[in-house]
Amino acid sequence: MQCQACKQSAATIHLTEITEGQRSETHLCEACAQKQGISMQTQIPINELLSSLLAAQPQMPAETAPALPSTSCPGCGSTFEQFKKQSLLGCPEDYSVFEKQLEPVIKKSHAGHDTHCGKVPAKAPDEAKKSTELIRLKQELELAVKVEDYELAARIRDRIKQLQ
């Protein structure tokens, strides 16, 4: 589709306006849209994104819902409702107390990921270090196969075997 303003470039921005029940459509290229001061909101602030995710979360079915609708964390007394309001958790314990409710929020914020695979404190138990390293190695293996670096893939596979 051609841009309605310059009639040269391809229209990539499509605006639909409804005024007093009348629907009108405008098709513009990026340059013309910018000239007319039309800017797409391409960046959603993190907090806004989080609130919208939380608002969109389906109500949990009765059987999987916590016994009390307003379960509070024994550590800090916070409820999941409070988190939904301010996007901040009350204490580290909340991650396990509200794990079920938090999981979809965490996955959405982190492109589907739900498990840590980065740095581990030196003081952490060896088991934690090992499991984090395994997750990382598996990611690296996938990548090596994807770029067809089979030599590297074989080395990573051996390391995984060793750890397991």
């Binding site: 396990s96 965490i106 990921h113 840590h116």
Partner: peptide, 23 residues
């Protein structure tokens, strides 16, 4: 890390007040 103990979980990594920073 040698001097203080961080809040850390093997599953979620370094625990942060907002889950958008966790891991």
């Amino acid at each position: 890390e040698e001097k203080v103990e961080y809040a850390f979980s093997p599953k979620y990594g370094y625990l942060t007040a907002c889950p958008t920073n966790v891991g």
